[in-house]
Each structure stands twice: as C-alpha cells, then as structure tokens.
Design a protein around this nucleic acid. Sequence first.
DNA 1: TGTAGATGGCAACGATGAAGGACATTTCAA
DNA 2: TTGAAATGTCCTTCATCGTTGCCATCTACA
Lengths: 336, 336
Amino acid sequence: MATMKDISKKANVSLSTVSAVINQSAYVSPELTKRVTDAIKELNYRPNAVARSLKKKSTETIGVIVTDILNPFYPPMIKGIEDVAFDHNFNVILCNTSNEHNRISTYLELMLEKQVDGLLLANIATSADLNEIEKTGLKYVLINRKPPFYDKNFVGINNTLSSELAVNHLVRQGYKRIAFFGGDLKINTARERRSGFISCMMEHGLDVDPKLVFEGEYSLDSGYNNVKKMLMEVEQLPEAICTVSDVVAFGVIKGLRDAGIRVPDDIAVMGNDNSAFSEHFLVPLSSVDHSSYEMGKLSMELLLQVIKEKEAMADRQIILTPSLVVRESCGVNRNT
Amino acid sequence: MATMKDISKKANVSLSTVSAVINQSAYVSPELTKRVTDAIKELNYRPNAVARSLKKKSTETIGVIVTDILNPFYPPMIKGIEDVAFDHNFNVILCNTSNEHNRISTYLELMLEKQVDGLLLANIATSADLNEIEKTGLKYVLINRKPPFYDKNFVGINNTLSSELAVNHLVRQGYKRIAFFGGDLKINTARERRSGFISCMMEHGLDVDPKLVFEGEYSLDSGYNNVKKMLMEVEQLPEAICTVSDVVAFGVIKGLRDAGIRVPDDIAVMGNDNSAFSEHFLVPLSSVDHSSYEMGKLSMELLLQVIKEKEAMADRQIILTPSLVVRESCGVNRNT
DNA sequence: TGTAGATGGCAACGATGAAGGACATTTCAA
DNA sequence: TTGAAATGTCCTTCATCGTTGCCATCTACA
C-alpha cells in the first residue's frame, strides 16, 4: 500500500502539504493540490485509518454489545445503529455475549484496547455491570434496559405503557381473568411490564391472581415451561395470557398447542415487542410495537452527540412510546 | 490512559522491557517482571491496540459484509462468525448493505482504510463485485453465494441437493404437479436450487410446467406477489409449491391464506433454509436446514487460516450438506 | 521592516524489535 | 594460575510504523 510519503515524493511536495490536501486543513495552491491529487489517484492511495487514529485519538468506531443476536428483537436495532453509523462514516464492532454474562468484561477490555470512540449497550440491567462500564471511562449510551436509578444517557421505551396497551386490548376484547407471563425481575423492562400489567388490571377493577403471574426469561423455552407449570398447578385456566415479550408468547402458544388448547379460541395470547415475523406466527400475534429499529437509530445519534461534546452535557433519556398491533391471537379483529 | 512510557518510568525499566513483559517476547528477570506487572496493575494500564496495529500491521479485526441482517438467515451466521472470532481475540466489524448494492464499495474502502486483517462476504454473486474485492488485495472468504467460475476460498452448501431433498419429500408425500418459486437468477444459490428442482423432477419422471416456475427475490414480498401472479395466470393450481427459501415460503403462505387457500390442505408448501422461527410459523414449515451458524463458524475459521499463512495456500471450498426438516406445511407427518 | 501567504521540517501519537552495551561467566593458551 | 578472549545473559537505546499539526521558513509585496 502506498503511503503519504510515496505521495509526497511523487508529487514532489512535503508531507504536510499532502496532509493538508487530504484533510483540507490548510490552504494549498491549485497547482500543488493538483499534483497531490494526481499522485493519489495514480498510486491508488488510501489513508491509513490506524495511523490517523493513533495521532488523532479517535477511531470513528463504536462497539455494540448485545445479549443475543438470535433474539429477533436485536437485528432491527443493530440495523438502525449501523445505518446511522454508516451515514457518519463510523464503523460498528459487534459484540454478541450469547447470554454469557462474563463475556461482557472481556468485550469491555477489548473495546478499551481498540480505542473505540463509544459504546452502545443493550443488555445492562444491574449496577454491577454499570460499574464496569463506568470504569472504562468510555462514552456510552444504554439501550432498552437499564440498572436501577440510572439517569444517564439512555434510549428505551415506556414499558409500563406497553403493558397497559396490552391489558386494555385484552379487556376490550372481553377477557377478565388474565395471566401474566413475565421475565427476569432483575431486568427493569420485565419489572416495569409486570407492574404496568398489575396496576392496569387494578384500574380496570380486575383481580390479579398471584398464581397466574409467572416469572421467567425472555425466551421461548421460558414461555413453554411456564405453560406446563400453569397447566399442572392451576385448576381454572385464565381466559387470556399477557406476555412480557413475543418470544415468550411464541413459547406459550407452542405449549398451549401441544396441550391441545387452541389460541385464540380457548385462550387469548398477547405478545409484547412486535418482533419480525410475529405477523406470520402460528397464530398471527397481537403485540405491542417497540420499533427496535428506531431505538437503534436514536441511540446511535445520541452517542454521536455525546462523543462530539468535549464537556459532558446534560444526560438525555429518550423514552419511545409503544403502539398496539392487533392481529389474531386475542380474537379475530381484521381492522388493523 | 496510562501508556507504556508511564509503566517504564514507574517500574524504572526501559520501554522494551515493558514490551517484553507484556508480549512475553523475551526473557526478563523475575525481579523486573514483577516491577513491571505491579506497575501495570497500579496504573491500570491497557495496551493501545491502535498503536500496536500500526507497528505490527495487523489489527485482529475482520469485516463482515452482509446484505440484510433482517433476513433471519444471517443472524445465526453472524453469531457463528462472532463466536469463533471471540475465541481468537478478533473483533468483527459489521457491514450491513441493506440490499443497497452500492454500499459494498463504500464498505470495502472503509475496511481497507481501517486495515482489517480479512473480509467475510455473504452477498457476492457477480464477477463485478468479486473484482472490486480482489482489487483491495485483502484476504477474504466468500460465504453462501459466489460468482460464476469462482474457485477460491468459499463456504457454502450444496444447493442442488437442498432442492432434491425438498422435491423428494414432496414426491414422497404424493404430490406430482409441483411449482417452483425461485429467486434472482443472478445469484448462484437461486440458479442451483432451481436447476436442482428441475432435474430432480425429471428424475422422478414428473413434468415441470414452465408456467409454474417463477423467478423472484429472497424476500417475503416476492413470494407473496408471485402467488398473486400465479392465481391470476394459471388455470389449474399446483398441488405443491417448492420455494427457494423460507422467507419466500412465508410470503407464499400469506398469499395463499389471503386468497382463502389452505396450507397444507389445499396446497403444500416447502421452504428452504430452515430459518429461525420457521417452526413457529403460521403453518409449521417443512424446510431444508442449512445451518447458517455452522457456515459462519467454518468461514471464520477458514479466514483465520488464510490470514495466518504468509504464502497463499491452496484455496478451499467447503460445501455443507443440507438436511430435510419435516414439519406440517406439506401434510402432517409428526415423525421427525 | 513588517506582514500576509504558501510551503516545508519535524516532533509527536504508543507501541515493537533489531542492534548493541554492560556485565558475568566460561574457555583456553601460556 | 592467570589474564585475555569468547560466549552468554539481561537490559537499553533507538529507529520505525503512517499520520497530524505546530512552528519555522521563505517569498512577495507594501
């Protein structure tokens, strides 16, 4: 590969002149400019971003840490991040922890060594994890999940509202005895969706049977297993099941189906997330849309801002508003 | 951030001694080693990978270029790549072209400037694109798709066989009049799956009605629209539809459903890819598994090898064998 | 002589590693 | 036994990777 030195020799100018032409950082006469640009073309020169990064202490690269790229929630988010990054000539280093929590530290160290300009993290739910991030001193934005009392840069959605939308829809459809299949209560989204469910039920004057509120994980298996558990433990089945996320709903429907229970004829099932292909699911899933693509875009834009500021500015929390998507899993309603 | 210089001052040794300790590249007495490691801990020193890369001319970073991360075929592939990369302390820069073909060139330039050690490309189907890649001089491995006559490093699957598995299954289920919903014939996988379909039909002594062979794209809309087209143009519907990929099958089933045609009761539909959630689809989709996760892993391992070799070694083509996955979309068969 | 305009010189950035120096130890002829 | 030469051990010095940008220099003109 040709270097700036080669260009300067070829064009018979100094290194600084070449640099000035490339970065347009100083006036260079048309005459010399031409000689330089000609040489660049002739030698097919490409600037070495590594050298430049070393000098400028900025890599135009960010790290994205995600729990599980296989979860359909993430690809749109990553696409959103990448789209914005691309527009700003940034690159995205993808870190997929595969739900192995201890990978986070390793990735953080790698990102530090690689001198990324910033970090986007979609899986930070505990203060311990947050501490590790803070220790790196890197600029960062959290997405979707956040630790308790976290009030710094963040992009997420209104989880309480997402449950309310779900409950309201179920109530409107005439269901009263409604179960909740939740996630890991260590995660704020799971907590908020759960409490949103409970408070909204109460607002409607409906009982929440503790036996019908399940903890679990954001996974298909969790939904499936909780159905099994419910079928064994509960005498009277609920009329509807409100789930913490679409993948859980997938598991729930599979579990019900395996037990010969029809959705929505026997039990209605509500998703939350509106992940890709929910529309084409066994039973087209009614859900609550979070636009993870939008979350990705906004978080990258926010990070870019944070990176640009020399002085730390006021932190920003962007909370998106979810929206109801009615399909068939809670009774047919072809209007939407 | 502390630098090696800080360490060398603190430990009162030379820079090279610090380097030697860090890289274990030369003998250093236990005494000095301790002084150095102590200083490293005390100052919380992390090597600067950018500086190291500049000197060593290797970044331990690879670029992955993919057409559309939203296509469920890719996330497992990316996960496979990332898993292997992680094990070797490599980082993955994700480039998602979003099916905008001209993004490829931009990404290639970016990757060149960023001095990646290699490239993994999952969307290269034309010789023109290949030329661009070759021009970069970067080491690379192609995944899944390849240009005509390409005989260099490659990881893919036996596409002909995947169609044969599909046709054999359909024939075994008793279907004779079978349509083929294909992809873009500029892409080898689409061509091979198509010709695999045709030749296997002929082997079975079955007619291939040209009116029942559709071109298209690897997308849901393509399947949907081709169904519409078929319903308008064809008097006698086929008994079964063999598709070029699961996403196309998703579109097909949606199209049939919207037209009031039941799957598999009225028409059987066969996928190809076995993408995530096909199992939980409207109609659990019979498909052919390609293990894109495995493809990702193998391609990254191959690339790592290619990077390690100083002399270009013999090129390797790894062709995986697909396997049939029977579910319900071609008539119930709960055996598998 | 002063000043503005156009270009070049050079020291960084943070690491690596070849070459060489200081010192201790071994070898060997006288 | 002795001293010089040879060998070996452990560490340091220094040039280098490809850029950037401050500062110096040089020219031209008022």
